[in-house]
Design a binder for these strands. Structure first.
Lengths: 316, 316
DNA sequence: CGTCTGAATGTTAACGTTATCATTGATTAC
DNA sequence: GTAATCAATGATAACGTTAACATTCAGACG
């Protein structure tokens, strides 16, 4: 593999001049530069980034930390990781995927997702030393990017309300996680802002599965008959649709249904589900851009929410 | 950041002894080693891999090439990339994602997926110089890993046949791509091997969409009434299910339906779709392991197919 | 006792690049 | 005419590590 020294010998100048011709052309006489570029063309020279890294004191590598409790095969993990990878590649960075949070100095920055308490401590420690960005919101740290779960459901509920639906119910999860709380709050606030009625029986709890969505919907329609049902996830919405169909309730004629996630299953039900698609590509891209910016000294003003996009189907 | 020289000073030995204590402990007196390890513990020393790479002449980086015609947001791309990333990380490698195929010497190996003709030429040229593995089968190259589309449909068809279904139809795509041809052939061979009848009207063409699957199924049942329908993709299968339901045909009572992909939508239809899940994690893991093995001098005997797994639902 | 062996450690140079300072001419300014 | 300036290039060292060879010293062997 040709090196800068080989090019120097070929052109009769020093290695330094070759380096300058390639990295800082203004410092080299045009004629010399032409000669050097021609020599580079005719050889198989490419810059050795390892050597550059050594002298520059950086690695052009980003650590991506996915806690081991998250399965890499989860769509939202896989899509985000791939988006991060593509965008980092565009910026000339490589990435190292880690499943355990250990300090690693062989990187220029860190992206971490979905931390539990102890990981958060480690992450904050690392963030003291390296540019770091978090996927998921945090009150202890400002460099984060997250899906705007609140706005996603809020906007969806308004979208439905603005179509004239008045009695709107919500089927969602009920455990202590940011995104669960935010989605529910988005619904509540949208209902309040639109001045719509909110009855107790319009708030139903389900797990994130088709089966649980089905059962929750059955419970809901046994006691009430809302005009629309906002679901916290597509899986729940699908279960909901199946339950309604079982009772021969027309969608969206009798009851409208909306979902949240947009991982593809919205197209597999009939009618096609109206859903809020998680902007996973944009989140991954933003995480990558943000860490690269931080490395280059461009700070992030504050945490950044990215709004889901409403994918309108035929269920509303 | 502490270096090997700092540790050397702290312990009163040479940098070389420190290096040996860390990389080749057998060469260092136990007492010296203990002293060195203690010093390393008490400092913030971690090996500088960039420097190691420079002297070793390798980068511990793998190039992952995804042609620009493939969208990184496609589930099968995103999941495979993530799996590659996880497995490379486990082996201490980073990855650089590229959307254009250019020779890059700053890597120890290459993984490429889904090449068109011109990319294939570039890839073969690169493979002359670097350990390289291809995602997708090839006749011009032996280091490849691919989903066994043939066996996936073959096994599924046999699975259905062995449940006693005799008249089995196939709805699949019809364009010139390996996976399209292989899936169809898998069906034909399974039917032949089980000695089942194959009528012309049992072979129906569709595009990979719910709508097209729906239409294809309508055409199929207008002229024939098979006992089971093997679909080339889950989307087609979903369309198929909707068409059957529209005609009040019971699944699987009157007609069984199977899909192929297993990206999640199999759980969103009722009845839950029996499908052959693409082993994307295993493919990604195998691609990563294979390229690392190649780097370490372990050859791949030949191309390797990985069989989809049958996920049994309620539609068969 | 001298030589040989081998374990333990040290010294030097090298990997390929760039930062820093030095040198060389030519041009400009006074 | 001499000093100052500037463009172009070169020489050297450094980044942190390891390969290759060198040294040291203790113990084994005849």
């Amino acid at each position: 593999m040709a090196t800068i020294k080989d090019i120097a010998k070929m052109t009769g100048c020093s290695a330094m001049t070759v380096s300058r011709a390639l990295n800082n052309p203004a410092l080299v006489k045009p004629e010399t530069r032409r000669k050097i570029l021609a020599a580079v063309e005719s050889s198989d020279y490419t810059q050795n980034r390892v050597a550059r890294s050594l002298v520059k004191g950086c690695s052009y590598n980003i650590l991506v930390y996915i806690p081991s409790m998250l399965d890499i095969s989860e769509p939202f993990v896989a899509h985000t990781v791939s988006a991060i990878g593509e965008r980092l590649g565009m910026s000339g960075y490589s990435l190292s995927l880690r499943r355990s949070m250990a300090i690693d100095n062989n990187c220029d920055g860190v992206i971490a997702m979905g931390l539990n308490i102890e990981d958060e401590e480690s992450f904050l420690a690392i963030a003291q030393k390296k540019p770091a960005v978090l996927y998921g919101n945090s009150e202890r740290f400002t460099n984060w990017v997250d899906v705007d779960n609140y706005k996603g459901i809020y906007n969806m509920t308004c979208y439905i309300a603005d179509k004239g639906y008045k009695d709107i119910a919500y089927i969602g999860m009920d455990f202590h996680a940011h995104y669960v709380i935010q989605r529910k709050q988005g619904f509540m606030d949208a209902i309040a802002d639109r001045g719509l009625p909110l009855r107790d029986e319009y708030l139903v709890t389900a797990e994130n599965s088709e089966k649980s969505g089905f059962d929750a919907c059955e419970r809901l329609i046994a006691t009430a008959r809302p005009a629309a049902i906002v679901c916290a996830t597509d899986l729940i919405a699908v279960g909901c649709i199946h339950a309604l169909q079982r009772h021969k309730i027309q969608i969206p004629g009798d009851v409208a249904v909306s979902g949240f996630d947009g991982f593809g299953m919205e197209r597999t039900v009939f009618p096609v589900l109206t859903t809020a698609r998680q902007p996973l590509y944009r989140v991954g891209a933003r995480l990558a851009d943000a860490v690269v910016n931080l490395i280059n000294g461009v700070p992030i003003a504050r945490g950044e929410y990215i709004e889901p996009e409403i994918i309108s189907g035929d269920s509303v």
